[in-house]
Amino acid sequence: MSVLVYIEADNGTIKGSSIEAAFYASQAAKGQAVTAVVTDKLEDSAIGELGKYGVQKVLKVSDERLAEKPVAPIATAIAAGVAESGANLVIMARSSLTDAVAPRLGIKIKAAVASNVVALPSQEGGEFVVKRSIFTGKAFVDVALKGDKKVITIKKNSVSPQATDSASVDIASLDVNFGDKDFSITLKDVKKQEGDILLPEADLVVSAGRGLKGPENWSMIEDLAKTLGAATACSKPVSDMDWRPHHEHVGQTGIKVSPSLYIAVGISGAIQHLAGVSSSKTIVVINKDEEAPFFKNADYGIVGDAFDVVPKLTEALKNA
């Protein structure tokens, strides 16, 4: 199947999740052509990296207005990439941008759309089947996508990308006829914490809850996260009380994460919180209540006071 992958960059670097998407695309292509569309500013040398993950051709869309990552024009640009490459399958790593782009693109190119896909497709017997995470991580469903065109968005850690040596990538520019209304949203301001590891991208996450007693006690969580190179997250009550910003809230109505390691400090493990983290590979729970439900959904646990355990864990990591 001829495949197109949408590549997102941040500050001139390809996002880790997009590398995963490129590798996913080349695996799903089964030897057929893999084309990438790039709408962010990226040097050709950075784009070359995609060759190691199986991308043969890159279509670059250069338009200053796309720097703000507007949804509708990027959907139009990817649709143009589909037309140019003749791809049947479009792969995107989930992000706040692609979550919004995928359904628009699906309508534009008349495709079956599956979001939240967690593994490579099965293509036996001419049927294209993907596994989706549903009920906020509490279940999975296998769905067959019919028709000539398909769009899927993949969850983090759906594949483990492996680089190869072959790295020749053909880079071409793609002209796009944007729609009249594509740019009808005006960006007024962006409030972003710079320098932090982005939570949905993070492979390691340190999360804390009400057990921390107050926002002033977060420095030990930040120390632990920094030592690990992890992102910080929090439970819903913590973001509701404004101890931490909403974009750190993990759970049923917050961000869903699937990192390799999730460390939960002072979070009891309500079903709504578990829903957002259950697809993490390894879960470590630190709680002073040995009856906390989170221990039943953890791989490693420490019963103890966060104020005692967390600094000791940080110290042990530094010494290791």
Binding site: S95, L97, I185, T186, V190, K191, L198, L199, P200, H247
Partner: peptide, 14 residues
């Protein structure tokens, strides 16, 4: 206000 990774953006739309 629209949530984006690591923050939010303020936008207007008719």
């Amino acid at each position: 206000t629209r949530e984006i990774e690591g923050g939010k953006e303020i936008i207007t739309c008719d």
